[in-house]
Design a protein around this nucleic acid. Sequence first.
DNA 1: TGCCAGGCCGGGT
DNA 2: ACCCGGCATGGC
Length: 224
Amino acid sequence: MIFDQLEEIYNALLNRFLDQNWWPATTKDEIIIGAILTQSVNWSNVEKAIVNLKQNSLCTLSALHDTKAEIIAPLIRSSLYFNQKTKKLKHFTNFLFTHFEGNLKLMFRQNLEELRKNLLKIHGLGEETADSILLYAGDYPIFVIDAYTIRICQRLGCTQSKWKYAKYQKFFMDHLSADVAMYKDFHAQLVNLGKNICKKKHPECEQCPLSKFCKYYENTTNPS
DNA sequence: TGCCAGGCCGGGT
DNA sequence: ACCCGGCATGGC
């Protein structure tokens, strides 16, 4: 299905909610740590973990690299699957120190395709986490897909149920200009929308700035 | 109370 | 190629 309104959709979200100013972190280290910790958990749980890491001066990649898993795990307990996530953090820092002297600037000197391929080899980093790191910490022009994005697209009726991550990503990137700041904010807008309005059933779609694009809204206003 | 949040992996068809 | 269980907290 051809759907050429993505830019219009983004503008509707931007007008209604203003710039979301994502990622909620001050350093690139913190963005990467947050990207791993937020897998399948709400951000408030991640925030507690980040605060704990900061209070122990462990919210940097080199500090995590130098710290035993038994120390890290209890600090990030609130982030769910904390033992798994401790390993994931370790896998990432091992990668960074093995190949790039622990220096993110060196890592981000790789081109997008090469680095993405390398990140995906790290145990515990899937497509969404890798792309979040690439976009928000590395400023590469790559669009992040998540569960909210898929849910909203399906509600809009602009995608097909069999589509998976790569297809969604291609869909967005084929229909948008490769603008890093816009990619960052568009994904943020979709998460914000997903967490709030679009989570509800379709009668509430009227409050959603995307209602005029939404197939359910059209169905309810044009029942015939 | 039970459900689900900004996933990912491995093992089974 | 898809499907499913494991991981294992906190807020509504």
